[in-house]
Design a protein around this nucleic acid. Sequence first.
DNA 1: GTTTTCCTTGAAAGCGGTTTCTTTAACGGG
DNA 2: CCCGTTAAAGAAACCGCTTTCAAGGAAAAC
Lengths: 336, 336
Amino acid sequence: MITSKKSRITYSDIAAEAGVSKATVSRVLNDDGKVDEDRRKRVLDTVEKMGYQRHRAASALASGRTGMIAIVIDDDLSVLSDPFYATVASGISRVLMRNNLQPLLLVAEVNSVDGPVAHYLQGGEVDGAIFFQLHESTLVRKLEKIGLPQVIVGTPHTNMDFVYVDCDNFGGGLQAAKHFFDMGRTTIGTITGDIVATAGKQRLDGFLQAYREHGKVASKKLIAQGDYSLESGRAAMRHLMQDNPNLDAVFAANDLMAIGAIAIAEEAGKRVPEDISIIGFDDSLVAQTSRPPLSSIKQDVVKLGETAADLLISKLKGETPDSVILPVELVSRHSA
Amino acid sequence: MITSKKSRITYSDIAAEAGVSKATVSRVLNDDGKVDEDRRKRVLDTVEKMGYQRHRAASALASGRTGMIAIVIDDDLSVLSDPFYATVASGISRVLMRNNLQPLLLVAEVNSVDGPVAHYLQGGEVDGAIFFQLHESTLVRKLEKIGLPQVIVGTPHTNMDFVYVDCDNFGGGLQAAKHFFDMGRTTIGTITGDIVATAGKQRLDGFLQAYREHGKVASKKLIAQGDYSLESGRAAMRHLMQDNPNLDAVFAANDLMAIGAIAIAEEAGKRVPEDISIIGFDDSLVAQTSRPPLSSIKQDVVKLGETAADLLISKLKGETPDSVILPVELVSRHSA
DNA sequence: GTTTTCCTTGAAAGCGGTTTCTTTAACGGG
DNA sequence: CCCGTTAAAGAAACCGCTTTCAAGGAAAAC
């Protein structure tokens, strides 16, 4: 046997060894069907024996399919400190690799419709893209027109028929508020996130729904706006306590604001959870390290990524999958 | 002008339009030099005018260079909740894109020398790889032999001549302990991280160095081992306080353990920072949300990623860059 | 038994760049 | 003014895989 220096093994080698044509090898390796079972087996054995590895670039060039999926993350500083993205990405990565697809990480300014990212995605360098929820969906819309398969992590604002996956924000708000009612709390406030964005709005809507289900209406004074930052949580809590002397429960749209709220409550001499119960959202690390440990609405973030990848793969196959809403769950710690 | 349906613009188009050969176009676009300035300009103008975009796969096939860089992250659950990785990755991504390279995200089990990741990296699918510090460096060693350019984020255990980038762990420990001495503290303890791993060991060594510079030696009772988890921080702090009644300062090798330490100190009736000062490491989000806010050693994590990418690009050019240690800085909050 | 149809198989033409090799042109020296 | 030398430009081969197309053989239809 002539061991060639270090030249890679190609279809020609396989074909020669297995006594078939390159075309047949290709058909076998791409599950094209229409191949005699004997030959098929022979090819597969040879592939295995010779340790063949597909040359992606060659394949991409010939077929037009690159096997690359872009994970597009808007390069906003707030993104960086949030473990959420890394966790979702790991879920995505796992599923894609299992399907022989490569996750391409694009951290960049996404806002412009003809920035580098836009060009890149339109240039046929990827077979599909997974976007994280974005404020500006013009790019997504444009790519949709072009026909690039995409999936969005998070609920898009505009209710266009994008395929997306998100956790049950509404249900989370509902559960939190219900829990308070079940505890016998009466004056339940909420600190919202950015309610222009969908997640913030839905969490608030769920919260309001719980009031409705109890035949009540949440007065405006019980709703304070935040922006997901610690400081905004503190400010909002100050307003809530000032406007509602009997305040005995607060649902914050994320953990950071919840922690700010706890701090303010205790500074005002209130005990948590005895006097005021507090529930956050995300069940992040800070929820566990806070004192008292923060009760929080938990979402399965890895699953979020896995689902996004599954949806995209489904689209790649030409199917038209429905968007997915993943369930959330209240993790009871000490604060509620 | 005949506008072809949607066929992409190729070298042939450029060549025809500019009145040169494909070869010349290639030379211009790859900075091969040796091209007449006039033609060069003409080609570049034409490229601009026609909105040409390079076809990566074709380029990769012909040249053998894929333009892809793997970012390899060991798929360990602990990874997922740590924003560190995402932040580094964003730094990497930014620099790579600027250099027309693509970051490929590989989140997978890295440990095996012939697992899928290993095969992938050896298969010529990427031009280089950036590893996050790993316990098992056999794979890296193997790839080094093969000649794949790689850079490691974090200090490798084995002091082989891998190129790596890390923050100044030693300096961080040193600074923290020095700060305590400068404050007039006398009984300064430390809670170590995993001291089998390099970072943990170096932070401890820096800490010990401060003692030495003050002509003292830290007794063994002042060193408690942790494993970076909140609970281990609590346990270690209990030991420290028990063994050292006069304990008045603690340097913890990460923020999470520092927060555990604060909790234990306060439970024991000590005031932070009046009775006991505490400094953590990482300056993570939890340092800011903790009460009292945690003083911490801060590293520039984005820079870490950018540097890693710069180093790799340097290697790609055939240079042999030196490893880099980035400076750290003490962020004073309330706890020290 | 012969003709038609269906289906598997192989040959070959790309896919869009890169690179070697050859040609052509320019320049300087004798 | 001619020849040798050097440098830039072009032609063409090639990278490894996919896919069309035509051929051939088996099965089905007549």
